[in-house]
């Protein structure tokens, strides 16, 4: 099967080895940059759309949004660049009034890290919506944290003062209580804990009423 090389084996010079590697690397780099450039716009657009959908889901009556960044002292506008743990999003209604912030928070769930985005209105200490960005919870049980509409709507109008607690399904009576999912108590509690942590982290950082960041560019959605 093996085909014999027609030329006698000859030790190539080191420079030739390095050279061929360099050429391969160069060509590969070219191809990669090519595909990157070709797909960049679509990918950026996809990501932006996905983000927008998520933000609109957790903040009611929002039609416009912008990305903000906490720089260690205050929240400032951030046009683009990578997201990190200090990134947040502000949502505005038709008239450009601030409707609330969309905050990301994560923490350990039943199986793996759960990442959620939740809508928050600091003025009245309220969570107004929750959306799971990422989770590997058990199908059929833990995944109800995003599949079970009844659970998700728990977070549509939830007081965070005192912090949110989970209660047995059907016994919800106070403004800060969440009905746990039967059989997936751990996942339910994990979501609540993650949101509580997010609230705790962001509550002090968010600007006071009156100092809210204004929607910068009109019409930007």
């Amino acid at each position: 099967m093996s085909s014999r090389s027609p030329t006698p084996p000859q030790e190539p010079t080191p420079s030739r080895l390095v050279g061929s590697l360099a050429v391969a690397g160069f060509l590969s780099g070219l191809i990669i940059i090519g595909i990157y450039v070709a797909t960049l716009d679509t990918i950026t657009e996809n990501k932006a759309r996905e983000l927008r959908e998520a933000v609109f889901r957790v903040l009611p009556e929002v039609t416009q949004m912008q990305k903000l960044q906490y720089d260690g002292e205050r929240v400032v506008l951030k046009e683009n660049g990578k997201d990190d743990e200090n990134t947040l999003y502000a949502g505005y209604d038709d008239k450009g009034n601030l409707a609330g912030y969309a905050l990301a928070s994560d923490g350990p769930g039943f199986q793996d890290t759960i990442r959620v985005l939740f809508g928050y209105q600091p003025a009245n200490n309220k969570v107004v919506g929750m959306w799971v960005l990422e989770s590997r919870e058990t199908p059929g049980l833990g995944d109800k944290i995003y599949k079970d509409a009844a659970f998700v709507t728990n977070f549509d109008n939830l007081s965070t003062e005192p912090p949110i607690v989970t209660v047995k399904r059907g016994t919800r009576s106070r403004a800060n209580e969440v009905d746990a999912i039967t059989g997936a108590t751990i996942s339910s509690k994990a979501v609540v804990r993650i949101i509580n942590q997010g609230v705790e982290k962001w509550h002090q950082r968010l600007p006071l009423p009156g100092n809210e960041p204004q929607l910068k560019s009109e019409g930007r959605t």
Binding site: I35, Y36, A38, T39, T42, I43, N46, K47, E50
Partner: peptide, 8 residues
């Protein structure tokens, strides 16, 4: 990248 662009 192709998958990311076409089938996110």
């Amino acid at each position: 990248y192709t998958l990311l662009a076409l089938f996110p």
